[in-house]
């Protein structure tokens, strides 16, 4: 086996049928190496989240070829798939069950993956994501946005996956917490050899964490380039250049 973690060819994703059919992603193709961190940026509504959701099996209406962690994906995902691939959602306020404590969330995830000695694993897992033991029995409404996102990351890490799909993990968080989460993600990747696909609209964030970046517009991947090229502002596609320009502008002003 080569060390390609994710290989996506000709991916189309659509919603609705007949006259209501709208295409969210068309002819997407990209590959991610084992241990690599791959970023997806682009316009809002361009289908970034949809690609991740299609990989995770949350959108049934797609066509194309996806090979993820050595498994060619069909309409259904196996249990083994979810032990290898996990996802963190965009909105930390909506991704935790309002009536479940951190402990319940994590132990259920571990139980579903058939892990044993859950009681001793939970504190270790929480420590991994920088949550102290005092948070173990809290409900989501007793946590701040950053803490919730840590819980969501911990839940995704519960089964020690190889691949993490990150859907704007920091866009709802403030800059100081964002820095903490980004540092955490960097550490986790180094320690566990994880592969990331990270969606973000913030070029600074993607540039910080990822080596290669796909740029999307209106459901299409217009360009895949590596970070160095991006920093040198040598993008080929006009949309990428526009994106780069405006983001450089907005960070330079002060």
């Amino acid at each position: 086996m080569t060390d390609t973690a994710i290989d996506i060819q000709n991916l189309d994703v659509w919603f609705g049928s007949g006259r209501d059919r709208s295409v969210a992603v068309s002819q997407a193709r990209f590959a991610v190496e084992q241990g690599e961190s791959f970023g997806i940026v682009g316009e809002s509504g361009s289908g970034k989240s949809t690609i991740l959701r299609a990989i995770a099996g949350l959108v049934p209406t797609w066509s194309g070829d996806m090979i993820v962690a050595g498994e060619a994906l069909g309409p259904r995902r196996s249990k083994a798939f979810y032990r290898k691939v996990q996802m963190v959602f965009q909105d930390p306020y909506a991704s935790l069950h309002p009536r479940q404590t951190v402990d319940r969330v994590l132990s259920e995830a571990m139980g579903l993956h058939g892990l044993t000695d859950i009681d001793s694993r939970i504190p270790r897992l929480m420590e991994n994501v920088g949550l102290g033991p005092s948070f173990r029995f809290r409900f989501p409404h007793q946590l701040s946005g950053g803490q919730r996102q840590r819980v969501a990351i911990a839940r995704a890490l519960a089964c020690s996956p190889q691949i993490l799909l990150l859907d704007e993990p920091t866009s709802a968080l403030d800059v100081s917490v964002q820095a903490e989460i980004l540092n955490l993600l960097t550490d986790l990747r180094r320690d566990h050899g994880l592969t990331y696909i990270m969606v973000s609209h913030d070029l600074g964030v993607v540039g910080h964490l990822c080596e290669r970046i796909a740029v999307m517009k209106q459901g299409r991947i217009v360009e895949v380039l590596d970070v160095e090229t991006m920093r040198r502002l040598e993008a080929a596609d006009p949309y990428t250049r526009q994106l780069l320009d405006s983001s450089i502008q907005s960070s330079r002003s002060v």
């Binding site: 959701r53 995770a56 099996g57 949350l58 249990k79 979810y82 032990r83 996990q86 996802m87 959602f89 991704s95 935790l96 069950h97 259920e108 995830a109 579903l112 993956h113 969501a152 839940r155 519960a158 089964c159």
Partner: peptide
């Protein structure tokens, strides 16, 4: 969605 991703 998240719990579905755990295989529930």
């Amino acid at each position: 969605h998240a719990i579905r991703l755990q295989g529930a």
